[in-house]
Design a protein around this nucleic acid. Structure first.
Lengths: 159, 159
DNA sequence: ACCATATAGTACTAAAATAGTCCTATATGA
DNA sequence: TCATATAGGACTATTTTAGTACTATATGGT
């Protein structure tokens, strides 16, 4: 189904909450209360987002998390990547040598095109859009993505 | 990682093979030989694609599969949906009532926006692009997607 | 200096999704 | 009527993901 994991979904809920009050330091326990997501899970998500510098942490008493950049500068693509790793829709796009047909594969390069189209779409949506859902707002995604080149490459996968 | 399943990847490999010779009837056994993908798996993928009318089947001796539409009319979004079901990145976009926070959820509508952006990107790439990868080809995706609006709708398609 | 508070990091277990295979039924051309 | 090929469903092993727990470290306030 081309879906993101639940942790990513939680991440958007948590970040939306934080995004409403960007100037306040938010502790994990406060976020649990506000969102209804279990504390261990909230904690796990916050750590992942901090590791990728989407959030900045403050340890110790009175500590917590704040956004590293403004909501408008924080896009959905980076949030998804922080939780799930690189956005690439097939294994061969991220891992070399796991596909027996790799040398004869014709479409690996084309998957790169598709990956890019999706990435561009996700990059165009920001946390600010999630925080302040302005009705009638428009997002313009104007590629062009250079279609492939069939780079050297090739695709496939299998095992 | 926002990835498609292996079956979907196989589907693109198989369809690319068929797309090279759109006027020929391709039997499952021939496709197995040409692609290296195991017969039971090829068979499973072909059945799924046929069920969603991306391929048309011919039973009996000399039977096999052909594309229902031309490669240029067959896009990546419909291929993914044929194998994996609706393209929607969170559960709450497809299933009602499974989320405890549904009534108070602020971002469901925004995920619909994201889903739409991704769908539009995938719809812009066709099987013809995979079959005949013209170098320097461009794909133009020009939304606008109406942000939010929390429309009623969702993009999506289903199964 | 000490202590309560809060994050950092890692490891583990259970549940869910996916992959891959197989079997039986049905349709068709020669 | 027989060989060939798809239709459809069921089943199992594997992999991935979710969710939790535990220990270490840092910090502010007293």
């Amino acid at each position: 189904m081309l879906r993101v994991s639940k942790l990513t979904d939680y991440a958007t809920v948590i970040l939306t909450h934080i995004g409403h009050q960007p100037s306040v330091i938010h502790a994990a326990t406060d976020i649990t209360k506000a969102t209804g997501v279990a504390l261990p899970t909230v904690s796990k998500v916050l750590k992942l987002l901090t590791k990728e510098a989407i959030l900045t942490s403050h340890r110790g008493s009175k500590g917590g998390y704040v956004l590293t950049k403004s909501p408008a500068e924080t896009n959905i693509a980076e949030i998804i990547m922080a939780i799930e790793g690189p956005i690439s829709m097939t294994e061969c796009s991220t891992d070399e040598g796991i596909c027996e047909q790799e040398s004869s594969c014709e479409i690996k390069g084309n998957w790169n095109l598709i990956n890019r189209a999706v990435y561009t779409a996700l990059e165009a949506v920001t946390l600010a859009d999630l925080v302040a859902p302005a009705n009638q707002q428009y997002v313009n995604i104007s590629l062009p993505v250079r279609l492939k080149g069939r780079v050297s490459n090739d695709l496939k996968v299998e095992n």
